[in-house]
């Protein structure tokens, strides 16, 4: 039974030796752990930037970007090694990966429109703007309306 074959659809199964496998799993576990620790450190850095006297929005954004990239790296290792997608036939990998590209537009459009909704509300709903804008940011906010427009309420 070295060739486990559940059905005639499958003609052979790939096999890795135990030693190779063990090495791969340990390596991946270490990578995942290290990335997670780096993410946690960045999380704490962001926390301390926020606590500081003059939080730099750019720095926070940059660190958040780094965390996002690290997360995608983690996802890659989980999917490729733990879920063995890396060992499948290329076409199979493509049928999984290509549809995920839809997320790009999915995310971009939703976020863009969410942001636009905020700007609309800040323009037309003064109460919303005053009650939710962090204190001290009123003047710094770059989005300004030239003429006062009638508010929602």
């Amino acid at each position: 039974m070295e060739h486990q074959s559940a059905s005639p659809e499958v003609t052979f199964t790939h096999h890795t030796s135990d030693a190779d496998f063990r090495k791969k799993v340990i390596r991946t576990t270490v990578i995942l752990s290290v990335i997670t620790v780096i993410e946690l450190i960045i999380g704490l850095i962001i926390y301390n930037i926020h606590k500081g006297p003059e939080p730099s929005a750019f720095l926070v954004l940059a660190f958040k970007g780094v965390v996002c990239i690290l997360t995608i790296a983690k996802a890659y290792y989980i999917v490729a090694v733990f879920m063995h997608l890396g060992d499948e036939i290329r076409n199979m990998i493509m049928t999984i990966v290509v549809p995920l590209l839809l997320f790009i537009w999915f995310i971009a459009a939703f976020i863009y429109d969410g942001n636009s909704y905020k700007n609309l509300r800040n323009d037309y709903d003064k109460h919303f703007k005053e009650s939710t804008m962090p204190k001290g940011h009123h003047k710094a906010e770059e989005h300004k309306v030239e003429e006062p427009k009638p508010g929602k309420q």
Partner: peptide
């Protein structure tokens, strides 16, 4: 998958 918001042109969509 790329065109869904054409149902929403006048909803306040950007």
């Amino acid at each position: 998958f790329l065109v869904w918001a054409h149902h929403m042109f006048v909803t306040g969509l950007n």
